[in-house]
Nucleic acid binder design. Structure first.
Length: 115
DNA sequence: AAGTTGACTATTT
DNA sequence: AAAATAGCCAACT
């Protein structure tokens, strides 16, 4: 596993239940700057059984990003999020102004040395 | 070693 | 408002 991926996973693992984060947000926290795409690539390799809550990562529009290779799993992701208390609007989007995760260094000391 | 690729994002049509 | 364009960064081939 590449080091960058480890950092990304570390950040994602810190997203509390009931909250979501955007790819760009995670990229920045992981020290990747604008490498939002790398975050997506990292999540692509996550296998079921991993302790990384990949379902809490959505795109900047509050919508679930899907891929030609992952299609079918978007429904699964939506179900997981709903079970965590996240509400989807009519368009199937999440209200980021309410559910967007706001990193708290006190809760996640791992970031202290990354940012 | 160099080119391609992608769970992105912001900008421009 | 939806679709195409252009930057971005690291992994993969």
């Amino acid at each position: 596993m590449s080091n960058s991926f480890e950092r990304i996973y570390a950040v994602v693992r810190c997203i509390p239940t009931g909250k979501v984060a955007t790819y760009g947000q995670i990229a920045r926290l992981a020290g990747l700057g604008r490498g939002a795409r790398v975050v997506g690539y990292a999540l692509f390799q996550i296998t079921p059984g991993s302790d990384v809550p990949w379902q809490r990562v959505v795109n900047a529009q509050g919508e679930i990003s899907e891929s030609p290779h992952r299609q079918g799993n978007d429904d699964y992701q939506r179900i997981l999020l709903k079970s965590e208390g996240i509400i989807f609007d009519e368009a199937g989007r999440i209200d980021l102004t309410e559910y967007r995760w706001q990193p708290d260094v006190a809760q996640c000391a791992k970031f202290a040395s990354l940012t």
